[in-house]
Nucleic acid binder design. Structure first.
Lengths: 297, 297
DNA sequence: GTTCATTATCGGTTTTTCCGATGGTATCCA
DNA sequence: TGGATACCATCGGAAAAACCGATAATGAAC
C-alpha cells in the first residue's frame, strides 16, 4: 500500500509545527483529519512516528529519520507540480534545441546559458552543431527551435531571422609549415592550386561544385584540426583560431580577406515561439549586455 | 490538488510499457483503472502526457519531461517505504551513536565505516568523542549505543563489555624543546615537578585529585597539540603521535612506560541491541579481518 | 480546582479508486 | 474486402479513503 501524499504532507506539517491542531490550521483541514491521517500513515509504514504521551506530539527517533525521507518525497512532488504548471499554464516548452555555429562566438554563449538556467531551470537545453544549410534545415523541420548561421541575404519564407550585434571575422589560414606559406601565396587563383578544407553540410551529398581538390567537414573545429596538421588551407573564424589554433596557423594575406561576417538567428515562423524561445530571442537580439532594453513580453 | 502516487505509478508504468493494457497487467489492476488514472493525472497537471491518436499511446514531449520528475518522486517514495520497512519489520535502529576514544586506532575504523554504509545505508551514524568516564556515562544514559574505552577491570553492572583484539601503546611524551627532555628525566617523581597535560573528562568537574600542576582536556588530540607547543608532558597513544605528532615530540624513557592498553567496547545491557548494533558488535569483536568467523544472527 | 488548548475517536458525507462491461478503433491477416 | 484481435475510452456501481463536525478525555497553566 502506498502512503498518500496528503498523509505525508500532514506528517511533515505536524512535525514542523509540533501540533496536530496548528498543522491542521496551516493546511486548511480539520484536526481530526490530520490526526487520522497521521495515524493511518503510522499503520501503513508500521512505524510509530510521534510520541503522544505528552500534551503535544513529539517525534520519535524513527520519526526523525523518516521525516527526512518524507521531505525528499514532498520536495520532488513540488518540483513535478511546478514543472507541470509551467508547461500547462505558461506554455513553456519542455525543451529548447539550439543549432550552434562555430561562426557564433561561444563566449557570449556562456552568459546566456547561466541566465537561461536561472530563468528556466526546468527546460531541457539541447545543443546541436551545424553550419550553413544544415542550420536552416534543422530549424525548418522542427528538430531545432533556434539556429545560428553566417548571415545571408535571403532565407526561406518559413523562417524568421534576426541579425545579431556581434560580428565574426573569417580569415584564410594554413599551417605555418605548409608549402603555400613559404611560397608566399597572395591571391585566390594561386590558392586554388592547393587543397581547400571547406565546410560541407550534411544536406548536400558529396560536395556539389567544388570537388576533387577540396576536402570537407561539417565542423569548423575539425577543419581547424586538419589545417593544423597541414592538410590544406581553410576559411576559419579568427576567434576559433585564437582560442584553439595554438601558434601553428598562419593567416594568409589574400585580397578581400579577412571578411567580416554577421551572424543571424533563425527560427521557424510555423508556430509562435514559446516563452523560453521568446525570452532567448529577446536576450540575444538586444546584445545581451544591456538588460534594460525595454523587453517585456 | 495533489496527484496520487498510484496515478504517478500508472503514468510511469504506461510510459515504460508503451501500453495501458500491459501496464495494467504489470500492476495487477484493470485496464480501465489505468486509463482513468492517467486521464485524471493529465487533468490534474494540466498537461497532455500521451498522444492517443495511434493504436498505442505515445509520450508527448511534455510527457517525456514530466516522466523524468515522476520517476524521481517514485524513487523517493521507494526509499521512504524501504526505510520504513527496515525500521518496523527488521527493527533496525534509526541511528547508531558511537563514542570513539583516541585510544582506539582509527585505521580499523575506516574499514568498518564503509562496510556499515553498505549494510545499513539508511541508518544514520553519529560519532562522539570522549575518554574514560565520559564514554561510560554517554553509553549508560543512552546518548550513545556503543563506546570504546581503555580497558579497565570493572564496569558498571548496567554495561556489557568486550575486549578487542587490537592493543594500543601509551607512552609519555614531551616536546623535544621542553626543559625536561634536556634535563634527562627518567623517573615519575621527577616528572611530577613539571606540568602534566592529562585527560580530563566532562563528568568530573575541575580535576579531583591531581590539581594545580596539571592542565586537562577531554581530547587526546588537544593534549597532543599542547604537548607539541611545549606546555608540558602527557601520556599519549603512540599511534596518535606517529600520525599527528610530526617530529616535534620525544618519548620519555620512564620505567614502566610505554604501557600496553587494551580497548574495550561497552554497550548497555538495558535493552537488547538492535540489528545495526548487533552487526557492529559481531564485526568488531571478531577482529574485523576474518569475515568467516561464523557470525550469523 | 478551573479553564484552556490539544488529541483520539465516532458517525456520516463526499470524494476517490477500482472493477467489469461495453462500444469504438487501429492493426494484422486471410 | 472482411474478420479477428488487441487496444483504448467511457459508463455504472461498489469499495475504499478522505474529510468533517461533534464529543470526550487529558495534559498544562493559572
Amino acid at each position: 500500500m502506498n502512503p498518500s501524499i496528503e498523509a505525508l504532507q500532514a506528517f511533515a506539517e505536524v512535525a514542523a509545527r509540533g501540533s496536530f491542531s496548528a498543522a491542521a490550521r496551516a493546511l486548511g483541514k480539520s484536526q481530526s483529519t490530520l490526526s487520522e491521517s497521521v495515524a493511518n500513515l503510522e499503520i501503513d509504514l508500521g512505524v510509530r512516528l510521534f510520541d503522544r504521551t505528552g500534551r503535544l506530539p513529539v517525534l520519535t527517533p524513527e520519526g526523525v529519520s523518516l521525516l527526512a525521507r518524507t521531505r525528499q518525497v514532498l520536495d520532488s512532488v513540488d518540483v513535478l507540480k511546478r514543472h507541470a504548471a509551467e508547461l500547462s499554464i505558461e506554455g513553456v516548452e519542455p525543451r529548447l534545441t539550439l543549432v550552434l555555429s562555430d561562426t557564433f562566438q561561444s563566449t557570449s554563449l556562456e552568459r546566456f546559458i547561466t541566465l537561461f538556467a536561472e530563468r528556466f531551470p526546468d527546460v531541457e537545453l539541447e545543443f546541436l552543431f551545424g553550419e550553413e544549410d544544415d542550420v536552416l534545415h534543422l530549424v525548418d523541420e522542427g528538430r531545432a527551435q533556434l539556429g545560428f548561421i553566417a548571415a545571408r541575404p535571403h532565407y526561406p519564407a518559413t523562417l524568421a531571422h534576426q541579425r545579431l550585434d556581434a560580428e565574426s571575422r573569417i580569415g584564410v589560414f594554413a599551417a605555418k609549415s605548409h608549402p603555400l606559406v613559404k611560397a608566399g601565396v597572395t591571391s585566390h587563383p594561386e590558392l586554388s592550386r592547393y587543397r581547400e578544407l571547406r565546410l560541407g553540410t550534411y544536406l548536400q551529398g558529396g560536395g556539389a561544385g567544388k570537388t576533387g581538390l577540396s576536402w570537407s567537414s561539417p565542423s569548423y573545429l575539425m577543419l581547424l584540426e586538419m589545417t593544423r596538421i597541414g592538410a590544406g588551407w581553410a576559411e576559419l573564424p579568427e576567434w576559433l583560431v585564437e582560442n584553439y589554433g595554438g601558434d601553428m596557423l598562419q593567416q594568409l594575406d589574400i585580397p578581400g580577406w579577412p571578411r567580416s561576417v554577421r551572424v543571424d538567428m533563425v527560427w521557424s515562423r510555423r508556430s509562435r515561439p514559446g516563452p523560453a524561445l521568446a525570452w532567448t530571442l529577446q536576450r540575444l537580439s538586444s546584445g545581451g549586455q544591456h538588460d534594460n532594453a525595454g523587453d517585456d513580453q
